[in-house]
Every structure is written in structure tokens, then in C-alpha cells.
């Protein structure tokens, strides 16, 4: 049954019944406590990526690798990152696979893709909280592609570390102002939660001035109160 399912998978296309693939779905669940069966299943799924031209089939495989993929699947998935039709579904799998191999693959791809695909790599690195990508993301804050620059700001906010906050603070790009502001405030919340009141306060004071929108000044004021140990509830 599983063999037949993999055969059907190679030619999967939108409009076809998904029932023939049910053995694969069932194997994903049933292999939970059978490591060897799961690794074999993973291997077959990853191999399918290079055995089919079907976009729908690749989409299906990536959804399954999101659930059971490991470092062993990273090369097959990374090979899709620069392909506009498959880049997102590759990240769909990669973003949820634990391990440094994924971060390294995303950082490598970040250097070779452009436009919205680059935004995708940035978003996934941010979502994974990859501290090692901060230097690359910091450089992108000044990117001429507005979407790339804003995505970098958002990702740095998602990472939320002191280094990320510093990178955001040293950016002077007006184009990313709203996203950078939000990201810095998110970093400040993390710094405060970690007990680094001094650096959190520095961020909040930066946004407390008259030149900021009212809701940003409100955020800064609340943050300064929190730094002083006063609840703003």
C-alpha cells in the first residue's frame, strides 16, 4: 500500500483524490514510536522531491517533512529554496525542523536569492530566532528593496536579543521606521524580561519623544514605567 501511495504521489496534481496517499499520512502518525520506520519514510519522502516535476507533489512532501523531517532532509529541501514555485513549501518544512543545519541552509540561501524569496528566508530565520543570522539581517536593514529591509527589521524583532536591538538602533533607514520601531520595542520587552533594565530603558527613552506617534510614545512610557518597576495596568 505504501509503495502504491508513493507511486501515486509522483504524479499528484490539483483536482486528484488524495485518498491514494492515505497510507503515507497513516505512516507519518504510526511511525511516532518507531524511529527506524520514520527515518525510512523520511528518506523516501525527501527522495521524491527530485523524482517528480509536480508542484503539488512537492507541496505534499514538504507538508509531511514539516512533521517528520530531520537534518537528513535539509539538502533536498534546501535545493528548492531558490525556486520560486517551491521556495515557500520548502520553508514550510524547514522552518519547523529543529537543528542548526536548517539555519545554515537558510543563511546560505539568503545570500543567493532576491526579492520576495529573500524575504522568505529572512522571515524563517526570524521565526526560528536564529541569533547567528543577526549580522546578515543587520546589513539588510539598509537594502534598496523596501520589502527586504522591512522583513529584516521584523526578523530582528522576532529574534529579540540585545544584538538584534543594537543592530536596529544603528539603522537610520526611514523606510523601515514602523517595522524597526516595533522590532526594537519587542527587543526591549525581551531585555526587560531578562533583567537587562538598562538597555531596555535606553530603547524606551529613544521612543518617548514628541516626534513619535502617540501609540509609540504610549508604548515607550509603559516600558519606562515597567523598567522602574511600576505596573501600568
Amino acid at each position: 500500500m505504501l509503495d502504491q501511495a508513493f507511486e501515486a504521489l509522483k504524479t499528484l496534481d490539483w483536482g486528484q483524490d488524495l485518498a491514494p496517499l492515505a497510507p503515507i499520512d497513516e505512516a507519518v502518525i504510526s511511525s511516532h514510536s518507531d524511529e527506524s520506520a520514520r527515518r525510512e519514510l523520511e528518506s523516501r519522502l525527501a527522495a521524491t522531491l527530485s523524482m517528480t516535476d509536480s508542484r503539488d507533489a512537492k507541496d505534499y512532501v514538504c507538508r509531511k517533512l514539516m512533521l517528520i523531517g530531520t537534518a537528513a532532509s535539509v539538502p533536498a529541501l534546501a535545493a528548492l529554496l531558490a525556486k520560486p514555485e517551491n521556495s515557500h513549501v520548502a520553508r514550510f518544512a524547514l522552518e519547523r525542523i529543529p537543528g542548526k543545519e536548517v539555519n545554515e541552509a537558510l543563511r546560505t540561501a539568503l545570500e543567493s536569492v532576491a526579492g520576495v524569496l529573500k524575504v522568505g528566508m529572512i522571515a524563517s530565520l526570524g521565526s526560528r530566532g536564529d541569533e547567528d543570522s543577526v549580522p546578515q539581517l543587520a546589513k539588510l536593514l539598509g537594502d534598496s528593496d523596501h520589502q527586504v529591509a522591512c522583513a529584516a527589521a521584523k526578523a530582528l524583532g522576532a529574534i529579540g536579543s540585545g544584538k538584534a536591538a543594537h543592530a536596529l538602533a544603528t539603522s537610520s533607514s526611514e523606510a523601515v521606521k514602523q517595522d524597526a520601531t516595533n522590532a526594537m520595542l519587542a527587543c526591549a520587552e525581551n531585555l526587560l524580561a531578562a533583567g537587562d533594565k538598562a538597555n531596555a530603558l535606553r530603547v524606551y527613552k529613544h521612543f518617548a519623544g514628541e516626534g513619535q506617534p502617540k501609540h509609540v510614545r504610549l508604548a515607550a512610557t509603559r516600558g519606562m514605567l515597567a523598567c522602574a518597576g511600576k505596573a501600568s495596568e
Binding site: M66, L67, S87, H88, R96, V116, A123, A151
Partner: peptide, 18 residues
């Protein structure tokens, strides 16, 4: 529970992100 933690979220299609 690394397996269950994969269900916490999913990658958004570019150019969208949280």
C-alpha cells in the same frame, strides 16, 4: 515534545511574516 512543537506554527508564504 519536539514532534508536537512542530505544530505550533507554519511558515508563511513570502512576502508575509508576523
Amino acid at each position: 515534545d519536539a514532534e508536537a512543537n512542530r505544530l505550533l506554527d507554519r511558515a508563511r508564504r513570502e512576502p508575509w511574516q508576523l
